[in-house]
Design a protein around this nucleic acid. Structure first.
Length: 740
DNA sequence: AGTCCCCCCATTTTT
DNA sequence: TGGGGGGACT
């Protein structure tokens, strides 16, 4: 067979990895070395050359995005669909198993997935039921504890408290929470993995079936696997199946959420015998950037070892800017962005990375002031938004009346006169009867345990849900979604709220209808077309397992802002890293352990290796944190980059009328930033005084009316509702406003 | 039921 | 410094 299309375009190391004989294989893939490509081509090779059927292959990733991308790239390469192959996230695959074998797994047929928010609410209720003081035992902490145990594969029964109060309580909460999940048929994220692992251990026949089926298992981002995922893989692989693990120990940045770097470090021992192949040729960055990254990461211990190289260009030195404070840093970054754009490059090519989300505000304000378009990644994802969660709550209640989390969420949203007193009565009834809130509510109504008014309201609510279900059972999903957001009153609720926020909420609700319209459920095993209610169930599962990428819209050429963590896997021509200071990056919370520090260093390595052409590293000499000024020292990571690769920079066009200040060595050629430039920032705005309701003109946004204002002096901001553009907050000092 | 105020907290995030 | 949550008040 002609496989040149699979092998052409690969370098030697990549080809070796792709064509390695079936067996355990560890591909240590450096940043920008063509990792996904190797994985995709390896799969194509296995199918075309070793006689493996797509159905014998299982590919696992961590995010839905990666899974989708992998599937489509394989199909593109093979030029045919690979329906029989399982490609998905750990959680997605585990979920698939549990849906298929719910009985063997000891679950109700219609078990529901509990997302993080639902989980927290359930834990809160559990704490109340146990009569524990939430101040002493914060729900968040309990959630953290429970998830951590599940990630380690441990159930409450496996845990010992050794007489320790903390342990004893946590185990108690864990146990009670397990009970609540059991009663409600609820499965949280950790439970998906844990239970499907247990399923295999308890059902040897089932395990044998899957072991026979999946002879080739491929895992992406192996350095991110946690204990239960690793155990799951080992059980499935057994002694005969082959595991191809792709990853990079130097990019392991999720230790804090249970990922075990040891898993990749010990792969060749645990999956013995195994071949190890390193991909070290980098196709992304300049050699200067790679040298810097190599030097930095060399400070870590216990690495599998790897050195990136390129036959590309040397590129520019790495720019380092010592800012006066965080405002100066932000301003300098804006300036650099504008200069990049002035040279005819796109702002989209730039990313600004920071260690913690809080840093984004200062940057945002500066970008707003200088009118540089930007987009912030992270923050709320689609299915986490309040209005979406409410709408989904109705859908969930339609699908399953016993879904208490959904019941609690929507019974009085929008308000329908069912207050806390009524709800508490229903909760108590549910607790004492051991039934769901829905059932308790029905009982309360029929037995007349509620005052007339409340009884009527509850009854109306229940009738509404029944009505919605009737509709949903006979209509396509997107029609039902539309029906639900209208009949439930959610649309009206936000409409009368008014304002910019409400408008975006309404848009999101419309977007949910679109998402429902675009949703295509997996084919049922028997190949029949799913009923509308089955489709709804599948849609809800996806809503829980997939955050839903909200990106997409907004085509403006904008700079990207995100944390270093969320930058993993991405690349940009120009990367700016802000806040390289001791205590911030490396973060002080990670500074007291070697493993923590090394993970911070890997995070920095990830940041550096995102850059293709140009890298700018910033630190401020003083930074305001929690309202207090702190003098800071440059991050050790800066010093770990060889001096000959770095170049200190300052504001363009600025004469170095430097004033000498301690610390800085006299031999250094760059001067301190000019005082007068700094003073410019504080300049008072020109005296345009606006009154509320006044009409104004803006060079970009056109005409609008002043709605609101806040602050004074150089900080004064006004909110203006621009005709056709909508509400915007502008800084008076910078927005070139004109009264009409 | 909604609003206000005070207190507490403050890394990183996917499923 | 600022945001969120909880409690108290209207």
């Amino acid at each position: 067979m002609d496989v040149s299309h699979i092998l052409n375009s690969l370098n030697d190391a990549q080809r070796q990895a792709v064509t390695a004989d079936p067996g355990n294989l560890l591909v240590l893939a450096g940043a920008g070395s063509g990792k996904t490509r190797v994985l995709v081509h390896r799969i194509a090779w296995l199918i075309e050359m070793t006689g493996a059927a797509p159905g014998n292959l299982l590919a696992v990733t961590f995010t839905n995005k990666a899974a989708n991308e992998m599937r489509s790239r394989i199909e593109e390469l093979l030029e045919r669909p690979i329906g029989g192959m399982w490609v998905g996230t750990f959680h997605g695959l585990a979920h698939r198993l549990l849906r298929a074998h719910w009985q063997e797994a000891g679950l109700p047929e219609k078990f529901q997935i509990l997302d993080a928010d639902d989980q927290l609410r359930l834990i809160k209720r559990t704490l109340q039921a146990l009569d524990l003081d939430e101040n002493k035992w914060p729900a968040k902490q309990c959630q953290w504890y429970i998830n951590q145990q599940k990630d380690e594969g441990l159930r409450a029964d496996h845990l010992e408290h050794y007489g320790q109060d903390y342990q004893r309580t946590m185990i108690g909460v864990y146990k009670a929470y397990e009970g609540a999940c059991e009663r409600g048929g609820l499965v949280d994220f950790g439970e998906l993995l844990l239970r499907s692992h247990e399923l295999w251990l308890k059902q040897p026949g089932l395990l044998a079936y899957y072991q026979q089926r999946f002879t080739e298992i491929l895992v992406d981002e192996f350095q991110d696997t946690n204990a239960i995922q690793y155990a799951w893989l080992r059980v499935l692989a057994g002694t005969r199946n082959h595991v191809t693990a792709v990853g990079d120990d130097d990019q392991s940045i999720y230790g804090w959420r249970g990922a075990r770097i040891e898993n990749i470090q010990q792969f060749t021992r645990d999956f013995h015998p195994a071949t190890l192949i390193r991909l070290e040729q980098n196709y992304r960055s300049t050699s200067t950037i790679l040298k810097a990254a190599n030097h930095l990461i060399a400070n870590n211990s216990g690495r599998l070892g790897k050195e990136l190289w390129t036959d590309g260009m040397e590129g520019e030195p790495i720019a380092v800017y010592a800012a006066f404070n965080e405002q100066d840093e932000a301003r300098f970054i804006c300036d650099q962005i504008q200069q990049w754009a002035k040279r005819g490059r796109r702002r989209e090519e730039i990313v600004v990375l920071y260690r913690s989300n809080a840093q984004s505000r200062e940057l945002e304000e500066a970008l707003l002031r200088t009118e540089v378009p930007y987009r912030i990644y992270g923050g709320f994802r689609f299915y986490e938004r309040l209005e979406i969660r409410n709408a989904v709550g109705y859908l969930r209640l339609i699908a399953s009346r016993d879904d208490d989390a959904a019941f609690e969420r929507v019974i009085n949203t929008p308000v329908r006169g069912i207050g806390n007193v009524t709800l508490e009565l229903i909760r108590n009834l549910a607790r004492s009867e051991g039934c769901s809130l829905w059932q308790a509510a029905r009982q309360a109504v029929t037995r007349g345990q509620l005052p007339g008014r409340a009884a009527q309201n509850v009854q109306d609510f229940m009738r509404l849900i029944d009505l919605l279900e009737e509709y949903a059972a006979t209509h396509e999903l997107h029609l039902s979604a539309d029906y639900v957001i209208r009949q439930s009153g959610l649309i009206q609720h936000h409409e009368k709220e008014g304002g910019e926020k409400a408008r975006s909420r309404l848009e999101n609700l419309e977007e949910l209808v679109n998402a429902a319209g675009a949703f295509v459920p997996d084919a049922t095993p028997d190949g029949e077309k799913p009923t509308p209610l089955e489709t709804l169930g599948a849609f809800l599962d996806r809503a829980a397992l997939d955050a839903g990428d909200t990106q997409a819209d907004d085509y403006e050429d904008a700079v990207q802002l995100m944390t270093l963590h969320s930058a993993k896997g991405l690349e940009y021509p120009f990367v700016i890293i802000a806040g390289l200071e001791e205590g911030l990056f490396p973060h002080k919370m990670s500074a007291d352990s070697l493993s923590g520090l090394e993970e911070e260093r890997r995070l920095c390595y990830v940041g550096l290796t995102r850059a293709r052409e140009k890298l700018l590293l910033c630190h401020a000499e003083s930074r305001r944190l929690h309202g207090e000024e702190h003098l800071t020292r440059p991050s050790r990571f800066l010093k770990e980059i060889p001096a000959e690769l770095r170049q200190e920079v300052r504001m363009k066009g600025q004469v170095s009328r430097s004033f000498a200040v301690g610390e800085r060595g006299a031999g250094e050629s760059w001067g301190r930033r000019d005082v007068s430039t700094r003073a410019d920032l504080a300049q008072e705005p020109q005296g345009l005084s606006l009154s509320l309701g006044q009409r104004v003109r803006h060079p970009t946004f056109g005409e609008g009316v002043v709605l609101n204002s806040e602050g004074r002096g150089s900080n004064a901001r006004v909110q203006i509702n621009f005709d056709g553009v909508g509400g915007k907050w502008l800084v008076m000092a910078y927005a070139k406003l004109e009264a009409i």
